[in-house]
Each structure stands twice: as C-alpha cells, then as structure tokens.
Design a protein around this nucleic acid. Structure first.
Lengths: 207, 207
DNA sequence: GTAGGATTGGATCGTCAAATCCATTCCAGG
DNA sequence: CCTGGAATGGATTTGACGATCCAATCCTAC
C-alpha cells in the first residue's frame, strides 16, 4: 500500500523531497539493497520516523526514487531529443551522453538501467514503472528521429521506432560496459555504429 | 583473502561445485545481495559450514560465481562465434541470442550484465573480473568478424574491434531492456541495426 | 585396517537493517 | 493567542544474515 498523499505542508514536502533525493543518490551509488534506511536517514538529515511517516516502507520509497530518476532522465535528455532534426543534432546528443559517462569514468552506469537490472525480476511494480520509463525515453528518441524523416533528412521508409530502440539499447549497453571497463569505448562504438547506419541511409537516395 | 586451493578429494570438489552452481543460479535470479547464504545452503543441500569451508566469505563465493558465469557464457557463445565467416553465420548467432532471451521473456537479463550492474561500483575485484569477461567476449566476437575481413566478406578497412564492441553493447542493452519490457523488440532492433550496417558495408565494394 | 586430514552437521553469536511506537515540537487557520 | 493536525526525534523491537565453532563422520594413503 503506497503512501501516495503528498505532504500537506510546505515543510513536509521539502522533507519528503530531501529523503527521495538522498535515497536516489545512495541507491544510484550502491544499489537499492545496498542502501539501508539508516543511511538514507543520515544522508537526508532526518530521523527514522520521518522516512516511515512519508513512505509506507522501503519499497514505497524505492517507488518514489524510480519516479524521481525517470523525471531526471527525461529532463536531462529532452532538450537534445526535442529537436533531433539533423545528423549533427544526433551527434550532439551522442557527445552529451558520452561526455557524461566519461566524466565519471563510467561509474554508476545508467540510473534507470541499474534499477532495472536489480529490481525487474523480483518486483513487478518496479518492472512496470521502469518499462514505462524506457518506453517514454525511446518514444522521445523516436519523435526526434521522426522529425528527420519529416524534413527529408531520412527517407520516409525508415522506421524511427526501430532506430530509437537500437539507440536506446546502445546507450544502455554502452553504459553498462563502461561501468566494468571504465572506458567509453563500447558506448562510443555502439552509438557511432548506429549513427553511421543512419547516416548511410540518409546519404543514399530513397528507392 | 580468497580460498583458492581446490578441494583435494573428489567429493569435496563435487560439493564445492554444487555450492557454486546453486549460488550462481540464485544470484542470477535474485541478485547477489538478494541471495543469502542460508538460501544457498538449502539450494545446494549442504550445511552452513560447508560454504565457509570452501570459501573465505560471501565475496569469495561471489568471485567463484563470476568465474562460473564467465565460463558458461563463453561456452555458450563460442561455438557460434568461432566460425563467424559469413553474414548468415552472424545472423544465426543473433537468432540464438534472441531465442534464448525470448524463451524466458527477457527475465534475468544477461548473467554477466546483472553482476556487472550490481557489483562494479562497490567491488573493484568484481569489476576487474567482469571487465576481463567482457573483454574476452568481445575479443571472441572480434575474432569471428576478423574471419569475415580475412575471407573478403568484409572490406579490409572495417574495424572488427569496433563492430564487436557495438554488437556486445547491443546484446547487453537489448537484454537489459528485455528485462523491463518482457519483449525482445529492443534486442532485435539493436542487433539487426548493427548487422544491417555490417551488411551494407559488405555490399558496397571497398574503395 | 588404521591413522589423520578432509569433509560434514548444526547450534550459536554478534551485528545490523526494517519497521514500530510514543512523546514532543512545530505551525497554519481561526 | 490557541488548538489540532502535521512533523520530528530517538529509543526499541523483531528478525534475518553473515560468520564462527566444535564435534562427528568420512575417505584416502599407507
């Protein structure tokens, strides 16, 4: 039973947000199982009872963290995906993703990907939420690519949905490998390969 | 301090193997943190002391599981990657990967990927081992692709290492998304896109 | 067969995380 | 003001997990 009622007072909302932000941070760094509620309590600067005042249990808090990361992820990528109207714009997005990964030497991987890998099998509610997150993300990419078919950069018979999934998988797989290898090589190779395929398609005239 | 000495007696080796196999299975299903040593004890049909007789601690057992999954993974893919001398052989491998994922509706994801996502950030020894696993895997793919440049299927200027990383990232990302979506759509899209790019490259004559 | 190490069983200990409880303080509306 | 619900602090309970210990049994080498 999730505790869905938002805090009524301003202070309460601030506290709840602080808990979620701290939990999101810790869970990103150490995983959900690796994040204890005492750790969240200390990081957020609250007391134990606060956590259970605003959340039914740890699962409920985790639910909030998933929503938090979903929003953060879309907020981060949306500006670049909104106007994906040229190959250069696509490459610009690629650079942003690669730079972000490089900045932390791949550590952490994708916030959504980590949660997905850890929670999907045992927690259907988490799986559903994350599936929706990924769908929204790939839909944002697809919409961007659709702009390229719309303005003639790509031939009309290209399937933006297929390419969007391929790009998303490239990002997730690339970030996962970056986590182990501490290199963005795989991420770059995966994205560059898909983008090269798109470029080749754009270069050759529609048959 | 790993307990690296293999059991001296036949029975001991069998017990140790049983523990590792049970632990690998549970850790694949529920993650490392989600797998308690009592659970491993029950699944393997041994008593607590057995586990700590053959392994220094849970980390040491996890180390063994990583090695186990690394071997299993290579053993599974090697037959297909060994003779990757044509586009059809590449597509055959793709089908095997996709079928395996489809068979369990994406549940579980990649055994190595799951471990990587959970352990890389907090356990350097695991990260190193998994990085080596992925390197070996991508090297096997690269060697296969190299056969295609060797026999003229692919032009000599193609970079098999780059393509191998792209394929590996496609597999990992695709399996991760399959875990959330319970569909192999993304996996297929990612692999098909990279393979289409390779095909296009093969079709056009070397400049 | 028999000695001695390898292997096994299962009780047990210390620790820590999840969740609960209750008493106290805060604060917005009247 | 002042009052009732919201918010907070922190002690506490309960249970599980990792790890240890020691006694009993098994096997292998001689």
């Amino acid at each position: 039973m999730p505790k869905q009622d938002a805090p009524s007072t301003r202070k309460g909302r601030a506290t709840r947000d602080r808990i979620v932000a701290a939990a999101a941070d810790l869970m990103y760094l150490h995983g959900v199982a690796g994040t204890s509620t005492p750790a969240v309590r200390d990081a957020a600067g609250v007391s134990s009872s606060q956590i259970y005042h605003y959340f039914a249990d740890k699962d409920d808090l985790t639910r909030a963290v998933i929503a938090f990361q979903t929003d953060a992820n879309l907020a981060f990528h949306a500006p670049f995906l909104a106007r994906l109207d040229s190959l250069d714009a696509l490459r610009a997005w690629r650079d942003v993703v690669v730079d972000a990964a490089r900045q932390q030497h791949g550590a952490g991987g994708c916030p959504l990907g980590s949660l997905c890998s850890e929670l999907s099998d045992d927690h259907p509610w988490a799986r559903d939420a994350l599936a929706a997150s990924f769908t929204a993300w790939s839909e944002a990419i697809r919409a961007g690519l659709a702009a390229m078919t719309g303005n003639g950069t790509l031939p009309p018979e290209t399937d933006p949905g297929q390419l969007a999934l391929a790009l998303l998988a490239a990002v997730e797989g690339g970030l996962l490998l970056a986590q182990a290898q501490h290199t963005t090589d795989a991420l770059e190779a995966a994205l560059d390969t898909v983008i090269a395929h798109i470029r080749d398609h754009a270069a050759e005239p529609a048959r």
